[in-house]
Amino acid sequence: MKKTIVIKNLHDLHLFAKRFSRTLRGGDIIGLVGDLGSGKTTFVQHLAEDMGVKKTVRSPTFVLLQEYQTSKEFREKYNVSRLCHIDAYRLNNENELFAIGFEDYVERHDTVILFEWADRIPSVQWLDHYREVRFDFGEEGQRLVTYDKKSISKR
């Protein structure tokens, strides 16, 4: 079942990210879908912070794929040592995704993949452990964030 919440400001987004980060498990692939400027990269920055990533998380549009190490605490608690941040904005098909090294990260028990513009490569949604978070523009600078309720509450 899909659930949509209203995010009024950056603080709301931070709180949602905090909640969401606790549901992350190795092998997860989180599709982040929404238009330019809807908050996908900002959401990833918050999630990375919650996972103990020390480096600055920047937009990967140009580099396409970026890997980060999580903190020791996060690794010990959730068994996840790597965060893989992918941006498919410049990609056109699945072959291109594999050509940039996707197979080194997908379905690895020590890795969480955060995948911006996942809807540009429709086949990724059929991967095991795929979940989607959608960002829409609401009124007056608000964002509407839609996610699968089951996937977040079950854990």
Binding site: L36, G37, Q45, T56, R58, S59, T61
Partner: peptide
């Protein structure tokens, strides 16, 4: 120092 999110060229492009 560097950008915390998007590069300037990316801001132009997007």
């Amino acid at each position: 120092g560097a950008t915390r999110d998007d590069a300037a060229g990316e801001a132009f492009d997007k």
